[in-house]
Design a protein around this nucleic acid. Structure first.
Lengths: 185, 185
DNA sequence: TACAGTCATGTCAGCAAGTGACATCAGCAC
DNA sequence: GTGCTGATGTCACTTGCTGACATGACTGTA
């Protein structure tokens, strides 16, 4: 046993999410969160760059999965097909937990600052995908265009999935949007 | 003559942009800006919701132009073609002033918070475009997909144009990316 | 001419986010 | 036991942003 209760990060994360749901993101102060986690506000900012970041710790793994999928996609795949591999990998990760996704999404949609953070994470994902495509030999502007379109598809598909019934598969919705985009463009 | 110098908003905007360039967005405090504009910090927040918003006052007009273009696009146009009309209108507005766009873009790219704001404005633009398409009778998810892809094209094209030489036409770059997306997807 | 109302701005007090510098002290290595 | 390390606490501070109220030039009207 350490000097303090272990897993301060875990307690902070849990406390934050609880409070964001209970009182709303704006009303939940860092002091509240820290207090509930049995810790000082200063400690909160040691683990999370800011109040929003609590909800985005998963984005690192997501980005890794996406990049890996791009690397492992068959050499013969077109850029858009390679992007599909990335979207599929992302869907598999996120699609596991419809409940969590829905709750998290509700918190985010209720607050503009959180939407901003969500968007910049997706922009970073797009940038990573574009880089992954460039590694595959795709030139600009093709790499960026394909990656950005991929993220566009992701956004729409995720939005539909998260608003729909829990038993629907994200991968399925993603594929439908992916194909539909192809038909529309 | 009023009790104070006229056009406080204009002075605030100018002072803010100047200082963002001179010292960087983070280092420029609202107190600085207000002081240079000969006004109280409180007044700054009467005109701008926050420190970032100064750089985004044009987005209202942009959105109007886009929506109008969608309304006026020929009935026979496919969704993607209607989106082109919107992108063209946006390009015509923004493409006028390469210097201003480049400076503004440099300020924004140097700061994550500003990029977040830029992204949410673009997301709002996408939402407005999707709504415009729905008005045209396009169903979901087609409306959202087409609109989001349109914004993806816009992002890439704008990025290329703003980084390129001043005499290049935004509309041209936009069209190239628009067509290239069609080829890639 | 006086009077009332309005509008842009000032004044002031205050909260919450976020940061830097330094203190503390359990546990571990040696 | 000595000394180091790492996680947390403590404190003081800056900055963004807000609410409530004050001020006084301008405008319209009787």
């Amino acid at each position: 046993m350490g000097r303090w209760e272990p897993d301060a990060v875990g307690r902070l994360r849990a406390a934050a999410v609880d409070l964001y749901v209970e009182k709303g993101f704006d009303q939940a102060t860092v002091t509240d969160i820290a207090e509930r986690a049995g810790v000082t506000p200063r400690t909160f900012f040691r683990y999370f760059a800011d109040k929003r970041e609590v909800l985005f710790s998963g984005s690192v793994d997501l980005q890794k999965a996406v990049v890996t999928a791009l690397e492992e996609a068959p050499e013969t795949a077109t850029p858009y097909e390679a992007v599909w591999a990335a979207l599929e990998a992302a869907s598999t990760m996120i699609g596991q937990n419809h409940d969590w996704s829905r709750m998290r999404n509700e918190i985010i949609m209720a607050n503009a600052e959180l939407q901003e953070r969500e968007l910049i994470k997706l922009a970073a994902l797009a940038a990573a995908m574009a880089e992954g495509l460039r590694v595959r030999g795709v030139k600009e502007p093709d790499a960026s265009l394909t990656a950005e379109v991929g993220i566009a598809v992701f956004r729409v598909a995720f939005g539909r999935w998260v608003a729909g019934p829990a038993n629907r598969k994200l991968t399925r919705t993603m594929r439908q949007c992916f194909d539909r985009a192809r038909a529309l463009i």
